[in-house]
Design a binder for these strands. Structure first.
Length: 410
RNA sequence: GCCCCCAUCGACUAGCGGCCUAGGUCGCCACCCUUUCAAGGUGGUAGCGCGGGUUCGAAUCCCGCUGGGGGCACCA
């Protein structure tokens, strides 16, 4: 993977990185991380760290230390000078240009696109070294592929037209080109390139919204690839086991947030309750909530079946940590008063006991459970939508529960 | 303008000449379950862009069209 350090990691680049990673792990190869920073003018200070954080969070571990393209500046210059001596390149207004062949074609068998041929007459003599001495991407990148022993280049299809140039360059220095696989881009559901207006685009944004890494990885893997027509949910191990470049689709894929949401929910629900609670605590901490961790831990199971993203947790559980506002609700005072009286006598104040008490209350008042419970729910949680009422009451505790029922009547 | 690529339900896809009355998943709709919301269960909706070929037979192969995308920097 070879990102340029110009900002936060885009989810489309992650998809490409994921394919690289899956391919490498499947074949027992190495997945390399290279920072392509030859364009110093566009470099963003924190980007290198952020890119690594994002990859680590996703679990896409790379082999060996990450490298910087700019570190090879001297090697690149030496090669450029040699190419000039050999007559394969020439000076041009302070820069050095590579002489592309004028006749014939340059071709390669792209693993996802099939055979691609370019007439050489269409290839411009490309700048190898800028007049200020820095190598260009199209020079440094293929040279590094050679020096690093890269066997497979898996990258976005916006690089297709660069490939014949890079192949000619590699051959000019007497090396064999790697295998290329150009994967299609990721669009929004409207068919336009995925951008901010579609929602989250950087890994950080997905993380902040409460998506979890395994779900995101599973979803991304299915964007342009499928092991068969049936399987949807796959563990990291199964993904590695079944991944193959040959089954990567040559056509672009649309990013469907609804399906991601669903899949994230599937992963959330499948988590061990303790592990889940821990993830919620961690997430809320990251997001700057100062809610009591122990209470969060206890509340987590109440919403595990209900939310799709960790970011949905606060909306369900806020009533446990903050006062509720009842603006705009008209509640049946009689139900609230009876409930308060009934609950006052419940001991111990547990979900089971509470349920028994409230059900008998509903019966006594001749109300259907839903009609009896809804005003209580609203009075206690401040919302028509909440975790289970009885468990919620238990967690709130008798004192606070009674206080809210009382407050709701005034 | 010049090169190049892509094309199955709204979305992700299976399909690689007969197993297709085109399958799965998300979404959507209905019903069931139900203390709200979810989750879960059952059923349903919806597609091979168009036109020519090739073939006994085409979603699958070929050509054209249309539509979409990418590239054409001393950016990566």
């Amino acid at each position: 993977m070879a990102p340029s350090p110009t900002g936060l990691l885009h989810i489309g680049n992650v998809r490409t990185a994921l394919f690289n990673w899956l391919f490498a792990r499947h074949h027992g190869g190495e997945f390399k991380l290279r920072i392509e920073n030859t364009d110093t003018s566009r470099e963003v200070a924190e980007a290198v760290d952020q890119i690594q954080d994002s990859l680590s969070w996703l679990g896409l571990d790379w082999d060996g230390p990450h490298t910087f393209q700019l570190d090879r500046i001297d090697d690149c210059r030496r090669v450029a000078e040699r190419l000039v001596v050999e007559g394969k390149a020439y000076a041009d207004e302070g820069a050095i240009r590579f002489r592309m062949p004028d006749e014939g074609t340059t071709a390669w068998d792209d693993v996802v696109r099939g055979r691609i041929e370019f007439p050489n007459e269409k290839l411009e003599d490309l700048v190898l070294v800028r007049s200020d001495g820095r190598p260009t991407y199209n020079f440094a990148s293929p040279m590094e592929d050679v020096w690093d022993g890269i066997t497979h280049v898996i990258r976005g299809d916006d690089h297709v037209s660069n490939t014949p140039k890079q192949i000619n360059l590699i051959r000019a220095v007497g090396a064999e080109p790697p295998v290329y696989a150009h994967v299609p881009s990721v669009f929004g559901t409207d068919g336009k390139k995925l951008s901010k207006r579609h929602g989250a685009v950087t890994v950080d944004e997905f993380r902040a919204a409460g998506y979890i890494a395994p779900a995101l990885v599973n979803f991304l893997a299915l964007l342009g690839w499928a092991p068969d027509g049936e399987t949807t949910i796959m563990s990291r191990e199964e993904l590695i086991e079944r991944f193959s470049l040959e089954r990567v689709q040559p056509s672009p894929a649309a990013f469907d947030f609804q399906k991601l949401d669903w899949m994230n929910g599937v992963y959330l629900r499948a988590m061990d309750p303790d592990e889940y609670a821990h993830a919620v605590v961690l997430y809320l901490g990251e997001q700057g909530y100062d809610w009591d961790a122990e209470l969060v831990h206890k509340a987590a199971p109440l919403v595990q079946e209900k939310i799709e993203k960790l970011g949905d947790f606060p909306a369900f559980a806020r009533f446990l940590f903050e006062d509720v506002r009842l603006d705009g609700y008209e509640l049946d005072g009689r139900v609230l008063e009876e409930a308060e009286r009934q609950l006052a006598g419940v001991e111990p104040f547990t979900a089971d006991e509470i349920e028994a008490a409230l059900r008998s209350l509903a019966e006594r008042l001749g109300l259907k459970p839903r009609d009896a419970f809804q005003p209580i729910r609203i009075a206690v949680t401040g919302s028509k939508v909440s975790p289970g009422l009885f468990e919620s009451l238990e967690l709130l505790g008798k004192e606070r529960a009674l206080a809210r029922l009382s407050a709701a009547r005034s």
